[in-house]
Structure formats: structure tokens, C-alpha cells
Computed example of a mutant assay.
Amino acid sequence: MEFSPTNNIVKLCIQGMDMEEKGNPDEAGKLFMQAWNEATNDFEKFIAAHYVARHQTNVSDKLKWHETGLQLALSINNDMVNSALPTLYLNIAKCYEELGDADNAKKNYELSAAITYKPTDNGPFYHGTRADLQAGDFLTAERRSNYHADVIMNHIYFTAQVNGAGFAAALAQGDGRERVYIVEPTGPFENDPNVTDKKFPGNPTRSYRTAAPMKIIGEVTDWVRLSPVELQKFRDRLAQSKGEIIN
């Protein structure tokens, strides 16, 4: 089970978000419900429930969908979704507060505050780039972004999804070929705040960052590549961004 922008449910949710940005919430709501109805596993349902919930006008219905998302997250219980638990409990608490249920609101606020999520992902980990590196080399912070030449990075970004690293390599600037390296963090790491609880709930891309050096262990050459059309769409979005999508 791996998050992918080519997944049909993810695509539907992205289309729904586009409708939201265009000021068409009714069409967005239909797309999110379609995603829920067509979801084939708990992870797809978890993602769809997040969007269906926020389009409910009735607080009781919104609570039902948030609680559905929570139960799905608890059943999945992995690093893709556990980082969403504080926000899930917070959303549920707000619903109970609106419904005048102070006890359940307090309980869920406390659950949200009690979770200090630290990733427990054991990898393997990957870094996508166009730089020519060798096993034994170290990636370090204080270097230029792969995507925005005027941005100096304070962290090294990496992922536990080889296809995600391949996607990052495809978007990276430079004339070199796309490279996906197997990497090993030499210090503590945290969820990538640029993607965690942003477009999608939690950290489904299993994306992380560290300020410590990252050792190159090896290289992989086989990953799922986006079509030229899909890749160009993401390049266009990246060109319009202000540095928030970084690696």
C-alpha cells in the first residue's frame, strides 16, 4: 500500500481540490463522494473520508465522517497515517464542542494534545535528485534546493517510497539523469512539514527531513514513472509555487 499521485482515488481528490480552488464546492463534494464510493481499501477510504467530512454542512454528519476516518487510521496503524491522529482528534473535538457535548470535546482535545508524533519508519529510505553521487558519499544541509535555485536548504529531504523519490528526481532541476539513491539518516528525523497534514491527511507519502548528514548506501533504477503529461502538470504547479515544495 503506497501513496501515489497516479492512484485513481488520489486523482479524484486532487480534482476535487481543484474544484474547491475554482470556487465550485458542489462539484468538489461530488468528486470526494465518488472517491469514497470507488475506494477499494482502507487507505483509500481514509483519504476520501477526510475530504467528504469537510464538505458536510451538518455537524453531526461531519463528526460521523471524521470518526470514520479515525477508525480507518487506527486500523491501518502505520507511518502513512499515524501522523494524522492529532488533527483527527482535534477535528472530532471541535465537532463535539459545536454539538454542546463538553465531555467528549474535552476527551478528544486531550487525546490530540497528548500525541507528540515521532516517525518510527524503518525504511529503506530514498532520495531523488539529478546529482551524480557514489555509495559512501554524504548529503548535507545548507545546499541549494533541487527545485528552486535561490532557496538554501536547512534540511535533507527523503522518503520511504521509491516511487516518490523517483517523482522528486523527475522534478529536480539540472541536466543530469534522474537518480534515486538508497540513503541512511545519521541522526534524528521528522515528518516533512511541507506535506504533512497539508493537501492530504497525515504523511501518506512517508516524507521526512533531517538536519544530519545522509549517507548514500546505493542506487535503484526501477521505479514507476509518471507520463509526460502528468509530469508536466506537476512542473507547472511547481513553477507557480513560492518554494513551499522543496527537496
Score class of each variant (00 low, 15 high):
S227Q: 06
Q161Y: 12
N8G: 06
W223A: 04
Y157W: 05
E98G: 04
H66V: 15
I152W: 01
T186F: 03
T120F: 07
Q173W: 02
E2S: 12
A212W: 01
L226N: 00
A28S: 08
D132L: 02
I76G: 12
R143F: 09
T120E: 15
T210I: 08
A239W: 00
H50C: 15
L139K: 00
E142Y: 06
D222K: 06
T196L: 00
S60A: 14
N104R: 13
S60R: 14
R143G: 08
F200Q: 04
F167K: 07
G243K: 00
A165S: 14
M1A: 06
R179L: 08
I115D: 10
I152P: 00
K199M: 15
A113Q: 05
V10Y: 11
L111R: 13
I245D: 13
K94G: 14
E98N: 14
L70P: 03
V81C: 14
E20G: 05
D197A: 09
H55F: 12
T186L: 07
G100I: 04
A131L: 09
Q161H: 14
L171D: 13
T159D: 11
Y181K: 00
G176D: 10
L74C: 11
A160N: 05
V224M: 10
D137P: 00
Y181M: 02
N154M: 02
H148A: 09
A35M: 07
G23Q: 03
G202S: 09
E230K: 01
V195T: 10
V81A: 13
N82R: 13
D150E: 12
E190G: 03
I217A: 04
E184A: 03
G136M: 12
L72W: 11
K22L: 15
E97H: 03
Q15W: 11
N24D: 15
V52Q: 09
D236R: 00
G243A: 04
P185F: 14
K94D: 15
D101H: 11
H50G: 03
T57M: 13
N24H: 11
S83H: 06
L139Q: 05
E184W: 11
L111F: 12
A168G: 05
A212M: 10
F200K: 02
S60N: 13
N163L: 07
K198D: 15
N247M: 12
P25F: 13
T116Y: 06
